[in-house]
Amino acid sequence: MPLALAMLGLMLVALSITSLMLGARPIALSAVRDAFLHYDPGMTDHIVVRQYRLPRTILCLLCGAAFGTAGALIQASTRNPLADPGILGVNAGAAFAVILAVGVFSFASITAYVWFALAGAAMAGLLVYTIGASAGGATPVRLLLSGVAISAVLGGIGSSVTLLDPQAFDSLRHWQVGTVAGRNLAVAATVAPFIMAGLLLALIAAPALNAAALGDDTARALGLNLSSLRITVILSVTLLAGAATAATGPISFIGLMMPYAARWIAGSDQRRIIPLTMLCSVNLLLAADIAGRLIIYPDELDAGIVVAFLGAPVLIMLARSARTKTL
């Protein structure tokens, strides 16, 4: 465990530095260092690092952790290994609300539409939860299907809004792929407080999630307040998925894959899984974003697409694996 932590931490630092250096215009390490220590607004390299790559890297850190932790929370609280805010429609709820905000109410600034995103994520999250918590507990397939249904309904209404408004369509199609590129520091600063709060709530909920894993009755017998735990979890998922979606657009599958990696490293203790998931997810989004800049160089593939192409095969493998056969 300490070894894994150290390695993941090192990886995070290395990837962050790489993320500042690589791209359509490769920049030497010394120039990156100078951009922070002796910033010269006349140097193109310095501008690229400070104005483009730094916000991008910070967004990877924030939103990677957010999407991953949201997935870990949903997996733990619904006792469902195939959960992810993207697949279950929570991101779609946030995305739908952003489309409404931009397309119908003409809010162009993220400081305004982040609130819409939070409300949308909360509604979709509650809906998923209602279905997941209905009598007898939901099977993974039922939860997944409800996610499909929620995404379908919201996507349908959303596209009717964008199809009638070419301007909104144009600005939203770049956001809808899920990307950390082309955002400034103000975007990161807007969503940072929400994501920090969400991460904190997730860490607070972790010990109680351990007890909840034993089943509702046992958890109650151990003195756990289940409804307050549920509220904490929903609040945290809303903050994380809503704010991250507002910043990057909907990115799926981080929350599906990384809790698996964390469980593989640390076993079944949520107090370890949740912080580990955060670290792993940040690394994944950073790596995906860097890979996206290199795969079709000098053009770029958005991080959301790279993650989807990694994550979907993982989902399919999980469905085929022996352990989930009985689900």
Partner: peptide, 14 residues
């Protein structure tokens, strides 16, 4: 169903 959902998600991203 699960394989279908995964494949759809990948294609939708594309």
């Amino acid at each position: 169903i699960v394989v279908g959902i995964g494949t759809s998600a990948m294609l939708s991203a594309f």
